[in-house]
Design a binder for these strands. Structure first.
Lengths: 213, 213
DNA sequence: AGACTGCTGTTACCGCAAGTAACATGATAG
DNA sequence: CTATCATGTTACTTGCGGTAACAGCAGTCT
């Protein structure tokens, strides 16, 4: 039986798969998220049907491709979150890690955030399911960390999940905007966001002190 | 001369345009963001080229369509932001307004957040510009309100913009997740998010008090 | 040896949606 | 009666996702 034997065909197929993914990676890095299957196949030196044999459909390829980058980014973020430092320091390092990643490879970032909706397989999806997997995964991850390490009162699990997704969304939107306009340095952005999370919004005074205003 | 006269052809064209937009609205509400030009034309009782004469391309139609809803939502949010109440109250009402809107018309919401990238006109765009117009507009709007009404120290304008986009992103991501999973009531979600903005993250105690951990 | 299986690769095609060209029609102005 | 201009149509091109059918090439069973 070939239960212990990877049959060395398996390994060959896996290697092919990885080669294809790297070709796809190169194309996406060059052409952005609208990279066509033809282009990817050409880059890999083969033709379309092979891609479809390996990945089923475009969604499958994109999912496989996204998983690699998502996993990589999540590992970096986990490391930042688990650093042995003060909470504020950890938050800032994590924010900076994310922002540095999207700054370094904007095309990849753009691809990850813009799956562009599959074409026919989406039938029957309810709203909400369309959302970007990376954001969801980051949100859940952060929620777990928050719940594990913070002492919130009753309902802590739910609170942690809301905060996880909320903070990730904050990071994402601010990062996206920052990447487009570059209105300040990365360090300034990190500091501003951390300030926001640290309650400076609530602590700030009104500008025109009238109570009815 | 017909400088004072809107030439009543103009008005007729405008009415047509509005009718087409409403037809498009109906289709998008029914089919989601992947509504085809053919479908929209059919719903309006006409054929494709007319749509193209009125809106240029699909991006144009989508932009016009999005503008209507975006304006409507922004008006609601402005009203909530300008309410004569305590800051926390205003924040909660604003969050609730947004969440109620996306809860009431998820298809519209999904459309607004998922323009699916134009096809050919995107050439030459740098990264960052892809982002959803509604989010950007909400971010800028909120930034303006924050800057107008809060007394932040030096660099207040930049801080306000970061916070504006950050808070909007938080609201958006949390809302998207909530809409998909419905893990709690709207009121609970609003409260949790407001708590986050009010610095409860920073105030919470560690679970295992070891300093090195 | 010769047929069977399974994998990799190809060409050539289908269906569908965006976008366009060219033609038809009906009102209005000179 | 004709020129014009907006409104509408059919029929086409282009490009992409996806698939069917076929071609070469290992090994394998009898």
């Amino acid at each position: 039986m070939d239960t212990t034997q990877p049959t060395d065909q398996q390994r060959s197929a896996d290697r092919r798969r990885r080669e294809l993914l790297e070709a796809a990676d190169r194309v996406v890095l060059r052409d952005g998220p609208q990279a066509s299957m033809n282009a990817i196949a050409a880059e890999a030196g083969i033709t379309k049907p092979i891609l479809y044999r390996h990945f089923g459909d475009k969604g499958g390829l994109y999912a496989a491709l996204a998983k690699r980058h998502t996993d990589a980014l999540l590992n970096s973020l986990r490391a930042a979150l688990d650093a042995p430092a003060e909470r504020r320091e950890r938050v800032e390092v994590t924010l900076d890690t994310y922002l540095a990643a999207i700054e370094a490879r904007p095309q990849v970032y753009r691809f990850l955030m813009h799956p562009s909706e599959g074409s026919a397989s989406d039938r029957g999806f309810d709203v909400g399911m369309h959302s970007i997997p990376l954001l969801r995964r980051m949100g859940e991850e952060l929620a777990q960390v928050i719940e594990d390490r913070l002492d919130l009162g009753p309902g802590s699990q739910q609170l942690a999940r809301v905060w996880g997704h909320g903070i990730v969304g904050m990071m994402h939107a601010a990062g996206d905007w920052w990447l487009g306009e570059r209105p300040c340095t990365r360090a300034e952005l990190v500091r501003s966001l951390a300030d926001l999370l640290w309650g400076r919004l609530a602590a700030a005074g009104d500008k025109m002190g009238g109570p009815g205003f």
